[in-house]
């Protein structure tokens, strides 16, 4: 064993590097956050006021069919000569509605079920959770297909389908969260004070369940867009004059060898939306930690 010269202040290199890396990662986290916020703002603006953001009318057919990206058509045109960029801008409203709407439905339903099962316990817990398990065995996309197919393709049904296929996850998560919080000493403390069940739920349990729920919901928004994309791709989506992103992606399929841009850019938009929402969700969770509040 070699013994190096003594009494030199030691600074293990590896540790130092690790510290540097951590510092750098803090910086890059901020950059990523700024990027994802701008992406989301862009999509949000597009959804609210597409007229301001688009370069062309989404229904306007130009003479250049299947034109590759150029100064005139930023992201190229499709087989009817429509501007892809403008189609994406106009389609964002639908994609966003599906994402947010289905998370609201799935998250709300799942949370209420999970909360009830976890807090009440006993036979009701078993009943609810077996139902949730049953729903979980059906693949989400299959379930969504089932609903879309039976209720017919419309925006409302699409939201319903995606929402219902995602609620079991929320229910499971909420239940386990409630169970762990329920055993915390401060719940005992609250009940020895005389607080009612409603009070304990409202003031202690729900607020403490929110952080993971918010993270899951943000991630869920991305997933919902993906599922709806899948449905549209299968032809079970909303068929309208202006296609949503998923449908646009599927439309480009037939021309993939001659006009890759029709499919590629919707794909990139979907990925950006999903990644941005996920990053934002992470950040939101950090903000909700009470320790980081001051």
């Amino acid at each position: 064993m070699s013994v190096k010269s003594i009494a030199t202040p030691v600074q293990p290199l590896r540790i130092k590097r690790r510290a540097e890396r951590r510092f750098r990662s803090v910086k890059s986290r901020h950059v990523l956050l700024a990027l994802s916020v701008s992406v989301l703002l862009f999509i949000l603006f597009s959804a609210v006021a597409p007229g301001w953001m688009a370069s062309h009318s989404p229904t306007e057919m130009s003479e250049s069919i299947l034109a590759s990206p150029s100064a005139g058509h930023l992201l190229g045109t499709d087989q009817y000569g429509r501007d892809i960029y403008s189609l994406l801008v106009y389609g964002s409203r639908q994609s966003l509605l599906i994402g947010v709407g289905s998370v609201l439905i799935g998250g709300l339903l799942g949370s209420v079920l999970g909360l009830t099962a976890g807090y009440r316990g006993g036979w009701l817990d078993s009943l609810i959770m077996r139902f949730v398990d049953m729903m979980m065995t059906i693949p989400g996309i299959l379930f969504a297909i089932l609903i879309s197919a039976t209720l017919g393709p419309s925006l409302k049904n699409m939201i319903l389908a995606v929402g219902l296929s995602t609620f079991p996850g929320y229910a499971r998560m909420m239940r386990s969260q409630v169970l762990s919080i329920k055993s915390a000493p401060f719940i005992d403390a609250a009940s020895t004070i005389g607080a009612s069940h409603f009070m304990i739920l409202r003031r202690h349990i729900v607020p403490n369940c929110l952080p993971p729920l918010i993270v899951m919901a943000t991630i869920g928004t991305g997933t919902a867009v993906l599922i709806s994309t899948g449905l549209s791709f299968l032809g079970l989506g909303v068929i309208r004059e202006i296609p949503d992103w998923g449908y646009l992606l599927s439309l480009g399929r037939s021309y993939i060898s001659v006009a890759w841009w029709i499919s590629l850019f919707p794909g990139i938009f979907i990925s950006f939306l999903v990644i941005s929402i996920n990053l934002l969700g992470d950040e939101l969770r950090n903000l909700l930690e009470p320790r980081s509040r001051r």
């Binding site: 915390a184 000493p185 401060f186 005992d188 403390a189 003031r203 607020p207 009470p290």
Partner: peptide, 9 residues
């Protein structure tokens, strides 16, 4: 456990 017996939020 005083910290555990209060809601940290």
């Amino acid at each position: 456990d005083p910290a555990g017996s209060m809601n940290e939020r």
